[in-house]
Design a protein around this nucleic acid. Structure first.
Length: 578
RNA sequence: GCGGGCGUAGUGUAGUUGGUUAUCACUUAACCUUGCCAAGGUUAGAACACGGGUUCGAAUCCCGUCGCCCGCACCA
């Protein structure tokens, strides 16, 4: 594919990156002293710091930038939540496999109409039906294995004894949906309402592979944006409509196109989805994901999740191939509708009209004076039922209502039809949900792999300064003659100003620079003999290896300016060094 | 779950017709040295995945377990 060609030449072995990550404290395989567990990884000191930086940038973009709110919901949920979300049925498939061709099938599908409700059967019952009916592999006719449940959610029990069945959440999203009524009230009953959540999700993957790309316990940053279903525009869309996106549409087209055109041409189904695709792209670039190795791929129609109306994945090119790191879906009203159905709670939003509308309509007015004597105690019940009946249902001058399971036909003598005026100040709508959902571990790993460079056995991470776990290395050129003391003071001053540093006085200066390069520290400050004479130090930039001299007294201001990517010329004293 | 491959210091490795104290490099730490990009020296630390068997003797052969990697399948 054409996006691949532009990056040909960057060949990467994930094991190099993972090896460095383990060696330098970014990632450790979990429980390694016991042999490890596939699909579980721990973040080391540097990995944790870096991931925290990514989360903080993301959080600020959504809360400060877009005015969204953040919540933190539980990771354990009762079964009904995941019945409503569809995960219980989607996850807990009863599977059989052909012993010959190894094709896997859903057991209940194979039963077909040999049973009225195959989906309700237990494994042993399914087994029995398959054997009794001599059902074989539909593909090759081979013998089938016994039925096994493939449950990709971690099941648990809430409370002692037999308790309630619960699951570890497979996504953070449901925690937002179930809180929608409270959040909507919090937002003073207005749409749009954006809610974000950062947290862990759990999926008992059959076969986790590829390092942190598919984990059994993983970190997500999810946003659920509730919008008016009839208005999927976005106020800031006009500001970004000329920005470019690289798209791989599900009609097979690959194109680089502006956000505005993509919506006009119907490639992306609405403004708000397109806006957040751009927003996602900017976020990813800001933390150091390589734009040349980033694209958006539209889900195939049959690939689309059970809830999605349209879905685009932000994919990064990694050594494993193009890998989904963010999914941006229009989930329509699916989630809220399901929770309405399962909980019985009204989770609609009230869409107030600008001016209340007067609506005239006909209503049935029962004549209680006639109903009472005729039906006695049932009279008022029948009357209420008649009031609730639409006058268009009147047939042959009579209306039929059902009360306590009994039908009553009421003739014209029992009611009038009257025209009434009603004030309607709005309508109830079920909000639609736009969901940018980020795989935090995959994003973190992408930053590491895209930052990884190797020159003649020298490995380094060109991590963006914004997310680098250590911002400044501080060294004395020699650990003597007071140089170390001065360097320690500078180190402390920068740390106390809120910037992460690493003090190092062991080994040659080159080795110390190399150590910092390897963990992606963008800048190093070195105290040398000139420092003692004129109060200046060298500031060395990682990628260019260029050095400038700056005043010790300016050091925290310079440090801050450097991290913001500001031009440092105004701080330079004397000659710079290549 | 199936098929294949593989488990030796933090990392990468040598070592299998069974044979003394398990090789080398990098890394790490301490000291010396070192006036800006992985210099050098001395010393130190650190490994045969686990369990059982065969044998006078097992990293090496056999059996089992566990784990990892790759493919198949699965992937909301």
């Amino acid at each position: 594919m054409s996006f691949g060609l532009s990056i040909r030449g960057i060949t990467m072995d994930a094991s190099d990156v993972l090896s460095l990550c383990k060696r330098r404290g970014f990632l450790y395989p979990s429980y390694e002293i016991y042999g490890g567990v596939a699909g579980l990884y721990d973040y080391g000191p540097l990995g944790t710091a870096m991931r925290n930086n990514i989360v903080e940038i993301w959080r600020r973009l959504y809360t400060l930038g877009e005015g969204f709110v953040e919540i933190d919901s539980e990771t354990i949920g009762p079964e009904v939540v995941f019945k409503a979300s569809g995960h219980v049925d989607e996850f807990a498939d009863k599977m059989v496999k052909c012993k010959v061709c190894e094709e896997a099938y859903r057991a209940d599908h194979l039963i077909g109409d040999r049973h009225p409700n195959p989906g309700s059967l237990k494994e042993t019952e399914l087994d029995e039906l398959i054997r009794k009916n001599g059902i074989a592999c539909p593909g090759c006719g081979g013998e089938l294995s016994s039925v096994e449940e493939f449950n990709l959610m971690f099941k648990t029990v809430i409370g002692p004894g037999s308790g309630r069945v619960g699951y570890l959440r497979p996504e953070t999203a449901q925690g937002i949906f179930v809180n929608f009524p409270s959040l909507y009230r919090y937002n003073r009953e207005k749409l749009p309402l954006g809610v974000i959540q950062v947290g862990r999700g759990y999926r008992n993957e059959i076969s986790p592979r590829q390092g942190v790309i598919r984990m059994r316990e993983f970190n997500m940053m999810e946003c659920e944006l509730f919008v008016d279903p009839e208005d999927k525009g976005w106020p800031r869309f006009k500001d970004v409509k000329d920005e470019k996106l690289k798209l791989l549409a599900n009609d097979g087209r690959e194109l680089e196109i502006s956000v505005g055109e993509a919506v006009e041409q119907g490639i992306i189904c609405n403004q708000v989805l397109a806006y957040f695709m751009w927003f996602t792209q900017e976020f990813l670039k800001a933390i150091g994901v390589d734009g040349a190795r980033l694209r958006f791929r539209q889900h195939e129609k049959d690939e689309m999740a059970h809830y999605a109306a349209d879905c685009w994945d932000a994919e990064a090119l990694l050594s494993f191939g193009w890998t989904e790191i963010v999914g941006i879906a229009d989930r329509g009203c699916w989630d809220l509708s399901r929770h309405i159905k399962f909980s019985g709670v009204d989770m609609s939003a009230f869409k107030r009209f600008d001016t209340p509308q007067e609506v005239e309509r006909d209503v049935i007015k029962p004549k209680y004076g006639v109903l009472g004597p005729k039906y006695k105690a049932l009279g008022s019940k029948i009357g209420k039922a008649m009031e609730a009946t639409d006058p268009s249902l009147i047939q042959n001058d009579s209306v039929t209502v059902e009360v306590d399971g009994q039908s009553y036909v009421l003739g014209r003598e029992c009611f009038d039809v009257a025209r009434v005026k009603e004030k309607v100040s709005g309508v109830k709508v079920i909000p639609h949900v736009i969901e940018p959902s980020h795989g935090l571990d995959r994003i973190t790993y992408t930053c590491l792999e895209h930052a990884y460079t190797k020159k003649e056995d020298m490995e380094m991470l060109r991590i963006s300064a914004a997310i680098a776990p250590i911002k400044f290395g501080v060294f004395p050129l020699m650990a003597r003659d007071e140089l170390d003391k001065v360097a320690m003071d500078i180190d402390q001053e920068i740390r106390y100003s809120g910037i992460e540093t690493y003090y190092d006085d062991s080994g040659s200066i080159g080795r110390r620079y190399a150590r910092m390069d390897e963990i992606g520290t963008p800048y190093c400050i070195t105290v040398d003999y000139q420092t003692l004479e004129d109060g200046t130090v060298t500031l060395r930039e990682r990628d260019s290896q260029a050095q400038i001299r700056v005043k010790v007294q300016d050091i925290t201001i310079v440090a801050r300016a450097a991290l913001c990517g500001a031009n440092l010329d105004q701080f330079v004293v004397g000659e710079s060094r290549a």
